[in-house]
Design a protein around this nucleic acid. Sequence first.
DNA 1: TTCGTCATGTAATGGGTTACATGATTAC
DNA 2: GTAATCATGTAACCCATTACATGACGAA
Lengths: 196, 196
Amino acid sequence: MAKQSGGKSGVLEFAVLGLLHDSPMHGYELRKQLNSVLGSFRAISYGSLYPCLKRMLGQGMIREMGPADAGAPALSGRRSKIVYQLTADGKERFESLLAETGPETWDDERFDVHFAFFSQTDSDVRVRILQGRRSRMEERLASLKGAASKGAEKVDGYTAELARHGLDSTEREVRWLTELIEQEQLGGKKVGNKAG
Amino acid sequence: MAKQSGGKSGVLEFAVLGLLHDSPMHGYELRKQLNSVLGSFRAISYGSLYPCLKRMLGQGMIREMGPADAGAPALSGRRSKIVYQLTADGKERFESLLAETGPETWDDERFDVHFAFFSQTDSDVRVRILQGRRSRMEERLASLKGAASKGAEKVDGYTAELARHGLDSTEREVRWLTELIEQEQLGGKKVGNKAG
DNA sequence: TTCGTCATGTAATGGGTTACATGATTAC
DNA sequence: GTAATCATGTAACCCATTACATGACGAA
């Protein structure tokens, strides 16, 4: 009982934890950085971020560093900026999230966040997550193929075209993941250096 | 003021309207059909569908057809099934949603629904939506490219790889849309018949 | 002094998910 | 009879968005 309720559980929290693990930051800056972690585009709104920070503060994952305290880069003296820093508890929470390799980690958004912090994990963890994500995509592929063949009579050209396109991108995703897994197993961090 | 508030506005409503426009159905059946309209996979939950139907009923878009009333196919005598049917108001609402070509229609989920009902619109409408969607994807492309070049120093191999992959799929999406637009402008419904 | 950006927050709202509650019908 | 599936619905909860409220700082 009581799995975790709501939608995407703590994706935002995870991302914030990871960014603050890298370096202390204030909310406004955090929000700008978030889009590079949380999916390619998409910025989170303040109405979502600030309450999240408040919650994390209450749970002792983060702590406020007085603005005079400095230590972080790019802290030109603007105003009342509240700079947040990870506590030991927060660090621990982040590490434990990072180490997860279960089905939650194959979810779209969750996978992106894990991927963004991949260089901070062991190769085993990376491989397990990549394989899990791939099997998730293969399930999706199967369900798309099933739907395509079963309801073939009643669909018009556009529906068919959309299905074909969806199938295509999912297959591509699977191939991409397979490449990453292979590179991982060949023993390396040799990622991202394919001449382009 | 009061644009439309919340997240994805009436995507579910639109999809339900479209499915019921095709043929009367009860909730359980509706829910199964929904995944073919609303994105490739993803089924909506009852906790979302039934309240939506209730709301639509209250607004007079749909009406209950007594189970004995029949008329719809596949109505083997199960039980208390509440079969819903579009009212004139509902039909009108659906037509007016179908005719929209503004920025709302380029959104991910919204676009999928429009696409699913594409064969029920004019070619002009289709072209306008496809072009809008393409420009939306081109914006995304630009922002991805910007992020890739600007933050290139601080990203590790994995982040770069994710960005590269995102760029790739978005480019592919743009090409797909371009093909569809061209086929549309060549005068036809000739979609989905590319030997494969 | 006004405008744009930096900066932090809250309130109202919308819409989705899980888990629960209920019950009929069909197949074994 | 009992389990699976069909079928409808509610309650608690979570999380995100918009719009609003506030205010400092720098530049025109």
